[in-house]
Write a protein that binds this DNA or RNA. Structure first.
Ligand code: FES
Ligand code: FES
Lengths: 143, 143
DNA sequence: CAAAAAATATGATAAAAATCATATTTAGGA
DNA sequence: TCCTAAATATGATTTTTATCATATTTTTTG
């Protein structure tokens, strides 16, 4: 369902949501270690995220990554789309390119509902909300 | 979520459910082509399935694969377990080895319900039932 | 302005998943 | 019994994903 890369990216973004802001940037190394992801790999993953404006960054000394207010209002699914591509989550459980309402595969009917539910949640919950669930203690990080 | 291999295996089993029985065995080639899976690859995938008795087979001329009554009463999740291993579906959306009720990741709470639903369905619906949904026209094959 | 510290860009390597190929075993039929 | 048709077993190759490494650009600071 989710590639390793997507998981890493999501963890990194959640970490930034909790530990960074406009003034307090944090550099790859200081993200990678606590979330337990290889630094060079994470550095690479972060690039498309800043390009798509899901994450903010500044170079040079005193630079690093952070989330601004806009970044915080994106959803997890945005991250997944950037890292894994749009297709991944929309494809059929069995083999269709796109999960097909008209000519559903045998797994379709018994799974669409829950599947749609998951998609909706990934789409509607913002990074900010997820980070808040950690702050208030109903969810946990790091993993 | 599901590896390609699992999808292939499920498709093959469903195909057998619809087109084989104790007396009418069908050989790899005649499964692989209609379900659109590379023959040699499918042959390899079928081996663990017969070893775990999810699929039946006989060698030699007039041989092939088929499902007996017992095979038909297995669930899709059995196939997935054999092909992808037990872990795959039980692991956390983010990174925990096992999805953790005690110390849930930030995605856990918003996704457990639907996730559990999916698991239940994969576990409870038998191959026979899924094949029936195709026979009665509420689902479709091939893919 | 020069040096250093950071992100960014690019490419190389390693590991895993998917695919292909070939040899071996088993069962049926002449 | 011997030949043939099938599954089964095993290994090699390719492709994708994950990882590592290094060079380049940008920004701050002395
Ligand atoms: S058609 Fe297969 S899951 Fe929708
Ligand atoms: S702890 Fe992450 S999905 Fe359950």
């Amino acid at each position: 369902m989710l590639s390793n890369s997507s998981k890493y990216a999501i963890k990194a973004v959640l970490f930034l949501a909790l530990h960074s802001d406009e003034e307090k940037r944090v550099m790859v190394k200081d993200i990678a270690v606590p979330i337990n992801v290889p630094q060079a790999y994470l550095a690479k993953l972060l690039q498309p995220l800043v390009k798509e404006e899901l994450v903010s960054s500044v170079r040079g000394p005193k630079g690093g990554f952070y989330l601004n207010e806009e970044n915080l209002n994106h959803s997890v699914i945005d991250i997944i789309h950037v890292i894994d591509g749009e297709q991944k989550l929309n494809s059929c459980m069995l083999s269709l390119e796109k999960c097909n309402e008209e000519k559903p595969c045998p797994l379709h009917n018994i799974l669409v509902a829950s599947r749609k539910d998951i998609l909706n949640n990934l789409e509607n919950r913002t990074i900010k909300e997820l980070a808040f669930s950690v702050e208030e203690g109903s969810a946990f990080l790091p993993l």
